[in-house]
Deep mutational scan, measured.
Amino acid sequence: KELVLALYDYQEKSPREVTMKKGDILTLLNSTNKDWWKVEVNGRQGFVPAAYVKKL
């Protein structure tokens, strides 16, 4: 599985998104969309802005 690092805090704005804190390590589930990547964090799956994370 591929991991990404949260570069910034992000507060979810819809049920399809997830909240993350700067420094969190997230599991990358899908990065086919250039703007929104699907990740898993704390057992929850959802989208975060691709610009807010970096592949490890």
Rank of each mutant, 00 (worst) to 15 (best):
S14W: 06
E12N: 07
V53L: 15
D24L: 05
N42F: 09
V4L: 13
Q11A: 13
L56N: 04
K22L: 06
P49N: 03
L7P: 00
L28H: 01
L5W: 07
A6G: 03
D9R: 03
K54P: 02
E2M: 11
K22N: 05
Y10M: 01
A6C: 12
L28Q: 01
S31C: 10
G43S: 07
F47R: 03
Y52W: 07
W37S: 03
R16T: 13
S31I: 07
E12Q: 13
R16F: 15
L56Y: 09
P49I: 02
L26A: 09
K21V: 09
K22Q: 11
G23H: 05
V48S: 00
K55P: 13
S31N: 09
G46K: 03
K13S: 12
F47A: 03
N33L: 10
G46T: 02
K22T: 08
S31M: 10
I25V: 12
N30P: 03
S14H: 13
L28S: 02
A6H: 01
K34A: 14
K55Q: 10
T19M: 05
E12F: 06
G46W: 03
W37N: 02
K54E: 15
W36Y: 08
L3Y: 14
Q45L: 08
D35I: 14
T27A: 11
K38N: 07
G46F: 06
R44M: 08
V48W: 00
A50G: 05
V39S: 00
N30E: 15
L5S: 05
L7K: 06
G43E: 07
A51G: 12
K1H: 14
E17N: 06
L29F: 04
V53F: 05
Y52N: 08
P49H: 02
L3M: 12
E17R: 04
V53R: 00
Y52F: 15
G23E: 02
V41P: 00
K1V: 15
E40N: 05
L56D: 04
P15R: 10
Y10C: 02
N33H: 12
V4D: 00
K22D: 03
P49F: 02
V41S: 14
L56T: 07
V41H: 15
V39F: 01
V4T: 03
G23V: 01
D24E: 12
M20S: 01
V48Y: 00
K22H: 06
L5K: 08
E12K: 13
V18C: 09
S31D: 15
E40D: 09
W36R: 03
F47G: 01
D9P: 06
I25W: 06
W36D: 02
P15S: 14
D35R: 12
V39E: 00
L7Q: 05
L56R: 03
Q45E: 14
E12Y: 05
S31P: 06
R16A: 14
D24A: 08
D9Q: 03
L28Y: 02
K13F: 05
L26S: 02
S14P: 05
Y8E: 11
E17L: 05
L5E: 14
V53K: 00
L26C: 12
K55G: 07
W36K: 02
D9M: 03
Q11Y: 15
I25Y: 06
G43V: 03
K38S: 08
V18R: 02
A51C: 14
D24G: 04
T27Q: 12
F47K: 03
L28A: 02
W37K: 01
L28T: 01
D35L: 14
P15W: 11
V53T: 04
V39K: 00
T32W: 09
N30G: 08
K54C: 13
A6F: 01
P49V: 01
L29A: 03
I25L: 10
K21T: 10
E2Q: 13
K1D: 09
E2D: 14
E2P: 09
Q45I: 15
R16P: 06
N33V: 05
Q11S: 12
D9T: 06
L5C: 09
L26E: 00
V4I: 09
L28R: 01
T32D: 15
G23F: 05
T27C: 10
E2L: 12
T32R: 10
N42P: 10
M20R: 00
V18N: 04
N30S: 13
K13A: 13
N30W: 08
P49K: 03
K13Y: 05
Y10Q: 00
Y10F: 08
T19D: 04
N33K: 07
V18F: 10
I25G: 01
K21C: 10
P15H: 13
V39A: 02
L26Q: 01
L26Y: 10
V48A: 04
W36A: 02
R16W: 15
D35M: 13
G46N: 01
V41L: 15
W37M: 05
E17H: 07
S31F: 07
T32G: 11
V41T: 14
E17W: 04
T32Y: 10
